[in-house]
Amino acid sequence: MLEATLNFKLLEQCSKCGACFSICPSCMHIPGYDPRAVIQDILDGNHDKWLSSRHIWQCLECHHCLEICYQHYGFENAMTALRTIAAKKGIHPTQVKRGWEMFVKTSRLGEPALPARKKLGLPEPKASGAEEFKKLFALLKAAREKQENPEGKGSE
């Protein structure tokens, strides 16, 4: 439920085009970064070999590839899919892990800097939606479990 997907039909076209390669900042400035190779491996059924590669995290999600793509798809979708699979296997960068944990725990990536706010004469920050977010996140998890296991087998 609400999972990331990948469109192989569009990726087939990507493997024959490569327009994005000429505009992607990581392609230009990171030696060896070449998503055309990644896409070919995905199409050949060999995506596994990229899961532990640094390259899949070096996509900056700047959406340049999406904008220049005549399918308005872009290889960022392929990179996102690989990152998601890698994260599920626990092979994602430490800071990404930390960020995710903080997000799930607090619904934010940091709390307002109160002393600095006071010094600047800023008003009290508004209440966050943390509690409601936690409830919603639990509901999402429960809905997924229900979908995977509709009879309730194996769970309470």
């Binding site: 609400l2 999972e3 996102t80 994260a87 994602h92 990404v96 960020g99 995710w100």
Partner: peptide
């Protein structure tokens, strides 16, 4: 980059 990469649904 943090949340969508780990859980699109979230």
């Amino acid at each position: 980059s943090l949340v969508n990469n780990i859980d699109h649904g979230a």
